[in-house]
């Protein structure tokens, strides 16, 4: 069953917490991965791969650079999830 926006944000929060050690409550739709959450470009790849597995979605390399905020990623997953 497809995940809701709320479930995706919660899932991303867990992933970001595990990979970058950022408190889950800081992961909000308007937060930028690099500027606000200190997720660098390499950690971002790990976040993307973990999100792919969790939400059954493919996020190609060329799309990763467009995912600037948690909101961008959530919207992408909502649109593309299997």
């Amino acid at each position: 069953m497809a995940a809701t926006q709320e479930e995706i944000v919660a899932g991303l929060a867990e992933i970001v917490n595990e990979i970058a050690g950022i408190p889950a409550e800081d992961v909000q739709l308007d937060k930028s991965f690099t500027d606000d959450l200190d997720v660098d470009s390499l950690s971002m790849v790990e976040v993307v791969v973990a999100a792919e597995e969790r939400f059954d979605v493919k996020i190609p390399d060329e799309d990763v650079k467009n995912l600037k905020t948690v909101g961008d990623a959530t919207e992408y997953i909502l649109k593309h999830q299997g």
């Binding site: 470009s41 390499l42 971002m44 790849v45 790990e46 993307v48 791969v49 390399d61 990763v64 650079k65």
Partner: peptide, 12 residues
């Protein structure tokens, strides 16, 4: 090199 693409391929 394309850092992110290489990183993803190399790790996973």
């Amino acid at each position: 090199q394309e850092g992110q693409a290489v990183f993803r391929w190399a790790v996973f």
